[in-house]
């Protein structure tokens, strides 16, 4: 008898209070509607949003009250709690436009701002972004230095907005190689936003999945040495508690989005992605917008429903 054993139970959606819900409808946009959405996206991209969105229990925004009303084709109760993103394609985006790589990274920051705003508006609790990998240290020093300065200027310019909008910032990764000024800024922004609870933005800087597993094993080893832990007690759960994603209540992403058409997880959250839904999108990261995000979320919800249907 073949059986499937999953150490981590899939998130089960609570039974709907009513048998029929308009949110379960998945209308397909006709070309006219699509063009309208494109115009709307460009409009919202250029307009500055000063609206102060208050936290609501129903997590459903209403038109006019929020800069990003909840999409009609999505079901609020089936939204992922944790979304992870591999923001790939900045360099290629710049290249096809005849611009230097730095312009691609700057455009990538704009995409990240948009993603943070959408996650905040739509009730996603955790957003983890792969900003810089330990495997990226081979990049040219000029680009590396630019990236470090970009991280600093971005954090500096956004920290007030983060505090105002209830966003908590956490940074994971091997910080030993980062510039001192950036390290001080990280400590400061984590401290300033630690009480925020609307959205937790986890930024993976100088991070890799193997690094995380290795450092977790080191932490466990230290506890064994200090007699806080016995060898017989070492199991999966003990190691999980030492992974750097223990900074959040939801350390396991429900959905991973990888842009630029690559089909790899590229040494990102290796341990944590064991049962994550993987979504690969062709768009380069600077071009990944609201429509693409809605498509990814819709795809996620489709899979959950179909998966659940097998047990019905």
């Amino acid at each position: 008898m073949f059986s499937l054993r999953l150490p981590i139970p899939l998130v089960k959606t609570p039974p709907s209070s009513s048998s029929y819900s308009p949110y379960y409808l998945c209308p397909f946009h006709d070309p006219c509607q699509t063009r309208g959405l494109i115009v709307s996206k460009r409009g919202s991209a250029t307009a500055k949003c000063h609206a102060d969105v208050t936290l609501r229990h129903d997590r459903v925004s209403f038109a006019g009250e929020s800069p990003d009303p909840f999409p009609a084709e999505l079901a609020a109760e089936m939204m992922p709690k944790h979304v992870a993103v591999i923001m790939d394609g900045n360099g290629r985006w710049a290249k096809v436009k005849g611009l230097p790589p730095s312009a691609g990274h700057q455009a990538g920051v704009q995409s990240l701002r948009r993603m943070v705003r959408l996650c905040s508006s739509w009730g996603i609790k955790v957003l983890t972004v792969f900003a810089f990998s330990t495997d990226n240290w081979v990049r040219p020093k000029l680009e590396f230095d630019f990236l470090m300065r970009l991280f600093e200027t971005t954090i500096n310019s956004e920290v007030q907005a983060f505090k105002r909008e209830g966003i908590q910032i956490s940074v994971i990764g091997d910080s030993s190689k980062l510039p001192e000024s950036l390290k001080r800024m990280i400590v400061s922004v984590e401290e300033d936003t630690k009480h925020n609870s609307r959205l937790q933005l986890i930024v993976a800087l100088s991070y890799s999945g193997k690094y995380d597993v290795v450092q977790a094993c080191k932490s466990v080893a230290k506890k064994v040495k200090d007699d806080h832990l016995h060898l017989d007690d070492i199991n999966e759960n003990i190691i999980e508690q030492e992974l750097e994603t223990n900074c959040t209540e939801f350390p396991y992403p429900d959905l991973l989005i990888r842009t630029s058409g690559e089909l790899r997880v590229s040494n990102f959250l290796l341990w944590q992605l064991a049962y994550t839904e993987l979504y690969f999108n062709q768009k380069l990261w600077p071009d990944f917008g609201k429509d693409e995000f809605v498509d990814a979320l819709s795809s996620f919800q489709q899979r959950k429903r179909r998966y659940g249907g097998r047990h019905a």
Partner: peptide, 20 residues
């Protein structure tokens, strides 16, 4: 199958694996 997940495949080996 309908699930787009690697279902616990040994993560240690998946660092740069193409997933389809």
């Amino acid at each position: 199958g309908p699930v787009r997940s690697h279902l616990g495949f040994p993560a240690w080996r998946l660092r740069y694996t193409e997933i389809m």
